[in-house]
């Protein structure tokens, strides 16, 4: 079963200089999609898109405000939607 295409795989026969040039050209072209890339492709924040990242920070602010409110003896803001 072919898991990747021939275009993907035809690197083994390249010289180091050819591979550098191919990667450089690919990287240059790939810059076009920067604005649409997910914020993370590795690490522990993979899966967070820009919207989720904002939500996470907002939920964190809401929870902090709620805790501040409850610690002060007030009702606070309910952080749950």
């Amino acid at each position: 079963m072919k898991l990747l295409s021939d275009d993907d795989l035809d690197l083994a026969s390249m010289t180091p200089e050819e591979l550098d040039r191919a990667w450089d050209l690919w990287f240059e072209l790939a810059q076009e999609t920067n604005d649409h890339d997910p914020p993370y492709t590795h690490g522990v924040f993979v899966g967070l898109d820009h919207e989720k990242l904002r939500d996470l920070a907002v939920r964190g602010s809401d929870r902090a405000a709620y805790r501040a409110g409850t610690e002060a003896g007030g009702a606070g803001t309910n952080p749950e939607p």
Partner: peptide
């Protein structure tokens, strides 16, 4: 892997909020 990452995301909420603020 998803379960592992969800723990980190949840743990980072307050920290992320402070970074933004």
């Amino acid at each position: 892997d998803r379960d592992r990452i969800e723990r980190y995301e949840a743990a980072a909420e307050a920290y992320f909020a402070a970074i933004r603020r």
